[in-house]
Amino acid sequence: MVGTALAPAPVAADRPRAVRSRVSGGDRVFRVLAYAGGAGVVLVMLLVGLFLLLRGWSAVRVAGMSFLTTDAWDPDSGNFGIAAVLVGTVLIAAVALAFAVPLATGTALYISEYAPGRFRRALIALVDLMAAVPSVVYGLWGAYLLEPAAVPVARWLSTWFGWIPVFRVDGADPTNPLATVSVYTASTFIAGMVVSMMVTPIICSVMREVFSQAPVGEREGALALGATRWGMIRAVVLPFGRGGMIGGTMLGLGRALGETIAVYMIISPVFEIKWQVLQNGGNSISALIAQRFGESTEFGLSALMAAGLVLFVLTLIVNMVASAIITRSRSGAASEA
């Protein structure tokens, strides 16, 4: 009929379409194995923590909170704590990261952005091989090769930057060229340098992997707009890989906190809170356990187990935070280009 509008036909409400898929037997087996592997790792970690807690509980019960604030170590007399070795552990890890992070960042950028194809593969294999070198080899290298070369560096730092408390060396005479250099040997500084060589491959591998995932479109867009290679790296690669850089650094920190043999072979153990990283003497929790494990009484072993529990919890927290940062950077990283 002319002039009469037709009513719109009723529209059926939108409903989500049910998607059904059959799970094959292989998928079920893989799912069970994956869940079992993850649960097994968690179970092992819980058992390790429970073992350390049970074995160290008698020492913790005797010492109480003073276990974290006392810098002496004489469990049999009741005067013991991990304040000194805890500070030493953190200082060694800090020195290690101060050397490892710039070296790992530069190496990762060169491998992912500048190195040609065949040379890149060789460098990747070489960096991965460094992570497989035993700790005792690094300790021997540090004690017999690195330490004589590092002492002049430590002396120069204490001469020109001794006004900074961390670089001060008590008993050193910078004006006397014939003064003994023994005050600079077996120090936190040298131990940290050795540990840095051990954590650099871990940090470099994580950074290299994240840098290589930077969006190709944004890389080419920056270069098309006239940016240099370094300008593209600053505008695209580094912002994209910021989370991976932080996560890789924290993974390296977790490794540096628990390093034992190399520190044990280099450092001269003392039980006092010492902030001077260039001066002879220092200690760490892992080195303390290696030094005193064979000669301790039953109660002394309990105190060592308590110290190991503190190191276990500290390393676990660092690694968990690092894993969370790396996972977030892979899933939602974005550049500022």
Results as ranks from 00 to 15, higher is better:
140 L>P: 05
158 S>F: 08
145 L>I: 13
178 L>R: 10
141 W>Q: 05
142 G>Y: 00
157 L>V: 10
138 Y>Q: 12
156 W>E: 14
153 V>A: 14
148 P>S: 04
160 W>P: 01
171 G>M: 11
155 R>L: 04
162 G>N: 11
158 S>C: 01
168 R>L: 02
172 A>F: 14
174 P>H: 05
142 G>L: 00
170 D>N: 10
164 I>W: 05
138 Y>P: 12
172 A>Q: 05
141 W>S: 10
153 V>T: 12
162 G>M: 11
140 L>A: 13
172 A>L: 13
169 V>C: 01
168 R>N: 11
146 L>F: 07
149 A>G: 00
139 G>N: 00
166 V>K: 01
173 D>A: 06
159 T>A: 13
172 A>W: 15
134 P>E: 07
134 P>F: 09
178 L>I: 11
156 W>N: 12
135 S>Y: 11
159 T>I: 07
138 Y>F: 15
160 W>V: 04
176 N>L: 12
151 V>D: 00
171 G>C: 03
173 D>L: 02
163 W>C: 08
160 W>Y: 15
167 F>L: 06
180 T>Y: 08
154 A>L: 06
171 G>D: 01
162 G>C: 04
145 L>T: 08
137 V>Y: 04
151 V>S: 03
164 I>E: 01
179 A>H: 15
146 L>I: 01
135 S>V: 02
154 A>D: 00
159 T>G: 00
141 W>I: 14
152 P>C: 11
160 W>T: 14
165 P>W: 11
163 W>L: 03
161 F>H: 12
166 V>G: 03
152 P>W: 13
168 R>A: 09
162 G>K: 14
170 D>R: 07
136 V>G: 05
178 L>W: 12
175 T>K: 02
174 P>I: 07
176 N>K: 11
147 E>T: 13
174 P>T: 01
175 T>I: 03
174 P>D: 13
151 V>R: 08
164 I>C: 01
149 A>S: 12
142 G>H: 02
156 W>I: 00
180 T>I: 04
141 W>V: 10
159 T>W: 14
172 A>N: 02
148 P>H: 11
143 A>N: 13
145 L>K: 13
172 A>G: 07
159 T>S: 15
136 V>I: 15
134 P>S: 09
142 G>M: 12
147 E>V: 06
165 P>G: 04
162 G>Q: 08
160 W>E: 10
167 F>C: 06
151 V>I: 14
151 V>E: 07
159 T>E: 08
150 A>G: 13
155 R>E: 10
162 G>S: 13
157 L>I: 15
162 G>W: 08
156 W>G: 00
154 A>F: 13
156 W>A: 10
175 T>C: 03
171 G>W: 08
174 P>W: 10
174 P>G: 03
177 P>W: 10
170 D>C: 02
144 Y>G: 04
146 L>D: 01
157 L>C: 09
138 Y>D: 12
159 T>Y: 05
171 G>Q: 00
168 R>S: 15
137 V>G: 13
144 Y>T: 07
146 L>H: 10
156 W>V: 10
165 P>I: 11
160 W>M: 01
165 P>N: 01
138 Y>V: 12
135 S>W: 06
169 V>W: 09
170 D>P: 00
168 R>F: 11
145 L>A: 15
160 W>N: 15
153 V>Q: 08
144 Y>K: 00
156 W>K: 00
144 Y>W: 05
159 T>K: 05
